[in-house]
Design a protein around this nucleic acid. Structure first.
Length: 450
DNA sequence: GAGCCTTTGAAGGGT
DNA sequence: ACCCTTCAAAGGCTC
């Protein structure tokens, strides 16, 4: 996968030409025989389980996930012995890629410099479009740009929807649960007078030390446009999401912190990592797996999802890789000084990295550059910001071991992160108990394919 | 209540 | 360049 320069000047224009060749490369690797054996297994099992899917879908030509784990999961027998045949046409229906979320983009005539000096968008009229990168001439994005407007949306709000536009969580949802208005700061009123404001507001800190709420653009859009209720944030509750609750609130019943420094440390917003392709896929597919397999245990679900992930075609995976790349890109724009290392456990003991919010980024940042992606998430109620991602005051989890993935030394694996294939993690490099009984779930230790 | 489990990918430090 | 570690999401489970 293309790497983002820390300076953020790489907007992906170059790397768009890089093909997502993870699976393809793997097929050409020495382990190709075992790979194909697995595919054969999967294909045969697909034929066994799939009977009624439409014939013109991509699903017919791509390998299918092994039904064993899923069927057993649905029977609550995932870890019991004995493979089962399961003829369930619904289980392996293709998971059509769903497009990128809607984004509120400031005036299209002002795409290149929608920000005020304080990082906020000028409260001019806004055009609501799906997420897009109009300034990047990237193959495949035309479909997004050229998508047709849904007819069920309010006529007053020009909205264009991608035909696959049901995937609404990435980028908008680093704190997807952050819709509680209780977290809105009383002093924050970005919208111009008279402009309605949705109660669905996300609380995104504007600075590392504070929690300044930004009305969630998606929530506003969905509510105002009468969009599909499925996409409307859940009813507000009086309990903010734990990830957003300030540490001081969370710790209320507990013993006081050991020191003011600790408290201060815990209050600092935790800028989470951008989601990778698989995480985006999991977010999207998890509800389906839960519904289909009637399981809720994430460990089991993730096994199924990992299996399905490998069954996806290269094109399907490429879409998620592209989404992930965009997420990383936006993340790097929002937090140019952020480092994944900041979230390491050592963060608590080392001098924390100074996060520079977008609004405080140096003028040298490419925000004003013509190449700046127009992913600015305009605040529905006025001045908008690039939507800060995944902020929470929850400190990183502190593990007492050296890492549960560090148990088993794995074989040499490709390490480059430029391609999806090059995950350094192999099946043997992680301490996975491999509870699945089918051989398909026990890749050879030397296999490059997890 | 904290941490584990389980998945893949990305990032960064170490060698 | 390669290896290793950690984290990202999720919710049931364990201690």
């Amino acid at each position: 996968m293309p790497q983002l320069g820390r300076d953020g000047d790489d907007l992906g224009a170059n790397d768009e030409l890089i093909a997502f060749k993870d699976e393809g490369e793997q097929e050409e690797k020495p382990n190709v025989s075992s790979e194909r054996d697995l595919d054969d297994v999967k294909s045969s099992l697909v034929n066994e389980s799939e009977t009624t899917n439409s014939s013109d879908s991509e699903a017919d030509r791509r390998p299918k996930p092994h039904p064993d784990v899923e069927s057993r999961a649905r029977h609550g027998q995932l870890f019991q012995e004995g493979p089962r045949k399961q003829h369930d046409t619904g289980l392996f229906q293709p998971s059509p890629y769903v497009g990128y979320p809607f984004f509120m983009i400031s005036d299209l005539g002002n795409l290149c410099s929608p920000y005020l000096t304080n990082g906020a968008l000028a409260p001019t009229g806004r055009t609501y479009l799906p997420f897009q990168w109009p300034l990047l001439d990237i193959p495949g994005r035309a479909a997004i740009r050229d998508s047709a407007a849904p007819t069920h949306l309010s006529n007053s709000v020009p909205v264009v929807q991608h035909p696959h536009m049901t995937h609404l969580r990435p980028l908008l949802s680093y704190s997807p649960e952050a819709f509680s208005p209780q977290r809105a700061s009383p002093g924050f009123s970005p919208e111009p007078a008279g402009m309605s404001r949705s109660p669905h507001t996300a609380c995104y800190p504007m600075s590392p030390g504070g929690m300044t709420p930004i009305p969630h653009p998606l929530g506003w859009l969905l509510v105002s446009s009468g969009f599909s209720p499925r996409l409307v944030p859940p009813p507000q509750t009086s309990v903010p999401h734990p990830a957003i609750v300030p540490a001081s609130v969370k710790q209320e019943p507990g013993p006081p912190s050991t020191s003011e420094h600790d408290q201060e440390e815990e209050r600092k917003p935790h800028i989470k990592k951008p989601l990778n392709a698989f995480m985006l896929y999991m977010r999207e597919e998890r509800p389906k797996v839960v519904a289909q397999c009637k399981v809720k245990e994430s460990a089991t679900i993730n096994q199924i999802l990992g299996q399905r992930w490998h069954s996806l075609s290269k094109e399907e995976q490429a879409k998620y890789y592209d989404l992930a790349r965009k997420e990383r890109l936006l993340h790097s724009k929002l937090y140019p000084n952020w480092s994944a290392r900041d979230n390491y456990v050592s963060r608590l003991t080392e001098t924390p990295h100074t996060h520079t919010p977008l609004s405080q980024a140096s003028p040298a940042s490419s925000l004003d550059s013509p190449a700046t992606p127009t992913t600015a998430l305009a605040s529905p109620a006025g001045p908008a910001q690039l939507q800060p991602l995944s902020l929470t005051t929850k400190p990183p989890r502190i593990t007492h071991s050296v890492g549960r993935n560090a148990v088993t030394p794995g074989p040499p694996t490709p390490s480059s992160t430029d391609t999806p294939t090059s995950s350094p993690h192999t099946a043997s490099s992680r301490s996975s108990p491999q509870p699945l009984s089918h051989p398909f779930f026990h890749p050879p230790p030397t296999s490059s394919h997890r």
